[in-house]
Simulated scan of single mutants.
Amino acid sequence: MSQNAGELRHRIKVQKLTSGKDEDGYPTPEQWVDFMPLWAKVTHLSGKDLIAAQASNSKIVARVKIRYREDIDTTMRVIYKGKTYAIDSQALEDTNTGYESVTFLLSNI
């Protein structure tokens, strides 16, 4: 079964935190850098889901679904429409083959 390309119509940016050394060997401050832009399906929680999440002390506010990949994790963050979200879950694989798409849960930063 193939992925519906029209479903992934939102443009997101995934960023990762990096640190390094300058030309003299001194450590540079950590900073967020763009890891990659991706097409995704961003779904914000409905009012009912948001209330239920808050009742269980969850800070999840949205889900993001992307094509299957293994190089995105919870140390990264997502930028969507100028808002920054933390990735709060490991990749949740699709229910068909597990290799079509992955979904991450997002929270506000």
Rank of each mutant, 00 (worst) to 15 (best):
A53R: 12
I87Y: 03
H44I: 01
G47W: 09
E30G: 05
T84Q: 04
T28M: 15
E30D: 07
S58V: 05
S19V: 01
T74K: 07
H10Y: 09
K41W: 06
G6M: 14
T18V: 15
A62Q: 04
P27A: 04
D34N: 13
I51A: 15
I72H: 02
D71C: 09
N57I: 05
K21N: 10
W39F: 15
H10M: 04
G6F: 13
K59E: 09
T43G: 02
G98K: 07
I66L: 13
K16L: 08
A55H: 03
F104E: 08
I51Y: 10
F35Y: 03
V61T: 09
L106W: 06
I51F: 10
A53V: 00
L38C: 09
P27R: 09
D24I: 04
S56P: 02
R63P: 00
N4H: 05
E93R: 15
N108D: 12
V61N: 00
I72E: 04
L92H: 01
S56T: 11
K65Q: 13
T75R: 15
D94E: 11
V42S: 01
A62D: 00
A5F: 06
G47E: 15
K16A: 04
D22R: 07
M36S: 13
A86V: 13
R63Q: 03
K13Q: 11
V42T: 01
E30W: 04
L8C: 02
A62S: 03
E30F: 04
D22M: 04
Y68G: 05
A62R: 06
L8Q: 06
P29S: 15
S58N: 08
M36T: 06
D22Y: 01
